[in-house]
């Protein structure tokens, strides 16, 4: 496991807890724009953002997060990870980014070159998640070495195009978990509860 690339500083400042700020449209949009600009500078490419798509993604994500929110506070830590996966699901379901040029500063066999849009969205979700976890739990999440493995990114892109729910499992894999691939976008605690019901 390793630390994320240091781009968390590109997120806009806020006086509110990050878990609150990220659920405000104006912060979410500013954060996405700033992060995409920063990662574009790092990999050497310019991205174009579709604002209307981003707004619709935000609303779908809010509703998805709310609909599966666990009632038990003990599940908050796990749910933060799951919520980041849901964000990636919504971003990949209707990609709001277009790379206007191939990344000029990335290796040919890197994830950024292979799928610049998916890479930017994934790193955004991981970065926001990391910042929120640090703020809420004084916990700095590590990412799995598979983040460097192009085969995982190939699988991610291929499967996400067939069903966006795969994105949740991919993100949880990057965070070192073994997702439930049958229903990756169902919060596992809720799934467990439901399976135990007669």
């Amino acid at each position: 496991m390793s630390e994320l690339p240091p781009l968390s500083g590109s997120l806009p400042s806020t006086n509110e807890p990050l878990r609150i700020a990220v659920r405000r449209m104006r912060w979410f949009r500013a954060a996405f724009e700033a992060y995409v600009k920063a990662i574009g500078d790092r990999v050497g490419c310019t991205y174009q953002i579709d604002d209307a798509k981003l707004a619709a993604i935000f609303v779908r994500w809010l509703r998805a997060v709310e609909s599966q929110k666990p009632s038990n506070r003990q599940d908050r830590h796990d749910y933060f990870e799951f919520a980041a996966g849901l964000m990636l699901r919504e971003l990949t379901a209707d990609m709001p980014l277009v790379a206007l040029s191939p990344p000029s500063k990335s290796a040919a066999d890197s994830a950024a070159t292979f799928w610049p849009e998916g890479y930017a969205c994934t790193m955004f979700c991981l970065t926001v998640h990391s910042a929120a976890m640090e703020h809420e739990f004084q916990d700095k999440p590590q990412v799995s070495p598979v983040i460097e493995d192009l085969r995982h990114w190939w699988s991610f892109k291929e499967n996400a195009q067939m069903g966006a729910s795969f994105s949740v499992g991919f993100l949880l894999t990057l965070l070192g978990h073994q997702p439930n691939w049958m229903m990756p976008d169902v919060f596992r605690v809720r799934l467990s509860d439901e399976l135990q019901q007669p």
């Binding site: 449209m25 104006r26 949009r29 209307a52 707004a55 619709a56 935000f58 609303v59």
Partner: peptide, 17 residues
């Protein structure tokens, strides 16, 4: 200071729903 950004966000949310 956030008035206009908030109004823009409210407009975009209204468009989505």
């Amino acid at each position: 200071a956030e008035d206009e950004a908030a109004l823009a966000s409210a407009t975009d949310l209204a468009l989505v729903i």
